[in-house]
């Protein structure tokens, strides 16, 4: 990798091992993610890419029997240290899920949920941020006249953008996306991809995807994972045109996976 000394790293994963009980799901993973870049994680099912993503906002804490060793720093803070406030971390590192999961509340209540959780009650402030966040997720025009309708009434792609708006409202630095387009049709997918490229101006994005073309379209850096190991991590162009590792090359060219 060429001259990265000047780049600003926001995520730094060092020698990360993760066990589900006796099963080791991540093996000595290292990864760096740059600020305002899209980093994609690809690899066949069960390679640990989603698990790795869920380490970054400690969603794996919810699963019993998970043990983690190694280090993850976000903004130079060790997120697994004892002094870390997990709820603060999750406000700073937001997550978009595979299936759109708006709450069974109104569109408005969905967007301001994170703010209310953080204790903000001021109506004007909530209204302002709600509009800004919905605009940021390219959803304002579609929903501005029905903010009190249930979020679950929207079509799937708008639901997913509602989930993105919900994140933007709490102004995270990092947005994690766990196969955000896997339940969407190609047109909706394209829209989300365009949105991601817009969002990276202000946010750092890490995306897990099954779809190699998607990784090559949107990401700046790509990590290829296999059976819990980070096989190769490089600029996306390099991974897709001249991968250094034989395994990566075989996966990219569709020999397995």
């Amino acid at each position: 990798m060429e001259k990265q000394s000047s780049a600003e790293y926001i995520i730094n994963i060092k020698n990360l091992d993760l066990f589900y009980g006796k099963f080791q799901a991540l093996i000595a993973v290292d990864m760096l993610a740059q600020k305002n870049m899209i980093t994609a994680l690809i690899g066949p099912s069960g390679c640990g890419k989603s698990t790795l993503l869920r380490c970054l906002n400690r969603m794996n804490d919810l699963i019993r029997g998970v043990k983690i060793t190694g280090k993850i720093e976000i903004n130079n803070l060790d997120i697994y240290s004892k002094s870390t406030d997990v709820t603060e971390l999750r406000k700073n590192v937001g997550m978009v899920f595979q299936r759109p999961n708006p709450f069974p509340l109104s569109i408005y209540d969905n967007v301001v949920y994170g703010l209310r959780v953080a204790g903000i009650r001021n109506k004007t402030e909530l209204d302002e941020i709600a509009e800004k966040s919905l605009r940021g997720a390219w959803l304002w025009d579609q929903v501005k006249d029905k903010l009190n309708h249930p979020g679950l009434e929207l079509p799937l792609d708008q639901q997913q953008r509602l989930c993105i708006a919900r994140l933007l409202a709490v102004q995270p630095e990092v947005i994690l996306m766990d196969e955000p387009c896997s339940s969407l049709d190609p047109i909706a997918t394209m829209k989300i991809e365009e949105l991601m490229i817009e969002l990276k101006k202000e946010y750092t994005i890490v995306i897990v995807t099954h779809n190699m073309q998607q990784a090559s379209r949107v990401s700046d850096f790509t990590g290829y994972m296999l059976l819990g190991e980070m096989i190769e991590f490089d600029k996306t162009v390099n991974i897709f045109t001249r991968p250094a590792n034989k395994l990566t090359e075989e996966y990219i060219s569709g020999k397995y996976g």
Partner: peptide
């Protein structure tokens, strides 16, 4: 109540109690 509601709420920095009374109980 689908797990995804709880995950979505926790991922926004809500505590378990906030998640319970603002989302889970409502659902």
């Amino acid at each position: 109540v689908p797990r995804s509601y709880r995950e979505g709420s926790l991922a926004l920095g809500a505590t378990t109690w906030q998640t319970t009374h603002m989302v889970t109980i409502k659902a």
